[in-house]
């Protein structure tokens, strides 16, 4: 494993100041790692991912992103735009836009230039995920597996340092699940990003390079 990109130290999270969803989580991950986090429903997996992905704040503890201390009172859209890619269970694509427009969307908010090189990269990524023929098609007309591939393409288009996937195969059949997991494994092997995936599927959990269990607010390495 390369140097850690993210380091969480004693992270705690509560919504009502009474019950802690996360109760002292210690975790770190670097490029080339494919981390799988398992846990029961309501164990706080999505909450942990949201904190790592800077979508949500934490109550106490310390979170370092590339050696930079994250202040829970602040918002970090710039980091999300340039360093983090998301893949959601419900895809979270803009249905009225085409496949290509959805994949290009991150460029509106990142520092990356949108030029002919970028467009070539997009073509190759779409080709890699067998989406080239759907380039101009509206996302609303795609199947679940196709949508999730579009979501992954969108997540990796900026070459982020970290890819966060929250139950990416939750709505997919076996074949599509296999495709998605293979894609993640390839990305991890390429060593360009850290991949953190949450799942409740134990078969998929064995596909990662490291496995964790989130239980009673704590993260335990398996």
């Amino acid at each position: 494993m390369l140097e850690a990109i993210i380091r969480l130290s004693n992270i705690k999270k509560t919504y009502d100041n009474i019950e802690y969803v996360l109760n002292g989580v210690d975790f770190q991950s670097g490029k080339g790692e494919f981390v799988v986090i398992q846990g029961k429903s309501g164990s706080g997996k999505s909450t942990l991912l949201n904190i790592i992905g800077l979508l949500d704040t934490y109550t106490s503890g310390q979170y370092f992103f590339e050696d930079r201390l994250i202040n829970p009172q602040k918002n970090y859209p710039h980091l999300r735009a340039n360093k983090i890619g998301f893949v959601f269970q419900s895809y979270h694509l803009i249905e009225s836009l085409s496949v290509k427009e959805n994949v290009l969307l991150p460029f509106l908010y990142s520092d990356s230039r949108l030029n002919s090189c970028t467009l070539t990269t997009i073509e190759s990524i779409l080709d890699k995920f067998n989406l080239s023929k759907f380039e101009r098609k509206k996302v609303s007309l795609l199947s679940g597996g196709e949508k999730q591939r579009v979501a992954i393409a969108r997540a990796i288009i900026k070459y982020p340092d970290i890819i966060i996937a929250d139950e990416p195969t939750g709505n997919l059949d076996e074949e599509n699940t296999s495709t998605i997991i293979n894609a993640f494994q390839q990305l991890a092997r390429a060593g360009n990003a850290a991949i953190i995936m949450v799942t409740h599927n134990s078969q998929i959990a064995d596909c990662g390079t490291s496995k964790y269990l989130l239980s009673e607010g704590k993260l335990i390495r398996c």
């Binding site: 979508l55 999300r80 735009a81 340039n82 803009i94 969307l105 908010y109 969108r154």
Partner: peptide
């Protein structure tokens, strides 16, 4: 849609 864009890095101003 607003949530998706914010997740992708859109600021309030965007």
């Amino acid at each position: 849609e607003i949530g998706i864009k914010k997740a992708l890095g859109a600021t309030k101003l965007d």
